[in-house]
Design a protein around this nucleic acid. Structure first.
Lengths: 113, 113
DNA sequence: CTGCATCCTTTGGGATACTG
DNA sequence: CAGTATCCCAAAGGATGCAG
């Protein structure tokens, strides 16, 4: 039993990060604090609803800090917390794999099956 | 723009690995070839249906090789391919994070909310 | 600008029963 | 043993409209 011992921790991790957007959001927060609208521009494909939900979930999980500036209209900044920094290894390994995957698939299906 | 450039690769990766079980399955295949029934024992919570579906998907993705031995009753072995080995960094980072997460949450909610 | 509420569609996944 | 097929439910996620 090498990796086997770590079994359900993988489930734990995937339950928290398994969504379609969370790791992506985190990857953009690596740059430093970002406003809601900045994140929307960074990730055009996400709906505003999901961005809100995921940010809220990660805030509750303690990975993201939300700061509201009482301007008008409202301004809100999101940033990674110290706990959120624990996600860095995870968000780094994903694009590495993802890029390799895209290249490989480009080689696999040059024209059509 | 540091990490921003890698954007949609994260989506690619999550689309392939985002399910609840795939990374877990891979983590058990790290030990070497495994039979279908072995995997079921390793991951009691998975339904036989999902194990089949996920294995099939990863086979099609080229990460897993399926070998049928014409015994009776049938014997089938699954093992990681060379491409599947690319998943190793991913499946390693997950339990690391997952374990830390469980410990932290144990500290967070020692008794009850 | 930020975000909540509602409605709706799609997907993931479990249970069960049946087959080579 | 290793599947396949069906049915069904819950969760994820998109679209839109309203509000502080």
């Amino acid at each position: 039993m090498k990796s086997s011992a770590t079994g359900c921790s993988v489930e734990e991790a995937m339950r928290l990060l398994g969504g379609r957007w969370r790791l992506l959001i985190v990857s953009y927060l690596l740059d430093g604090p970002k406003r809601f609208s900045e994140l929307r521009r960074d990730i055009p494909a996400i709906s505003q609803r999901m961005l809100t939900l995921d940010l809220r979930a990660m805030e509750e999980a303690g990975f993201v800090k939300r700061t509201v500036f009482p301007t008008v209209p409202a301004t809100v900044e999101y940033e990674l917390t110290a706990d959120g920094a624990r996600l860095v290894p995870v968000v780094e390994v994903m694009p590495t794999f993802g890029l390799w995957l895209k290249e490989r698939d480009a080689r696999r299906e040059p024209t059509s099956p």
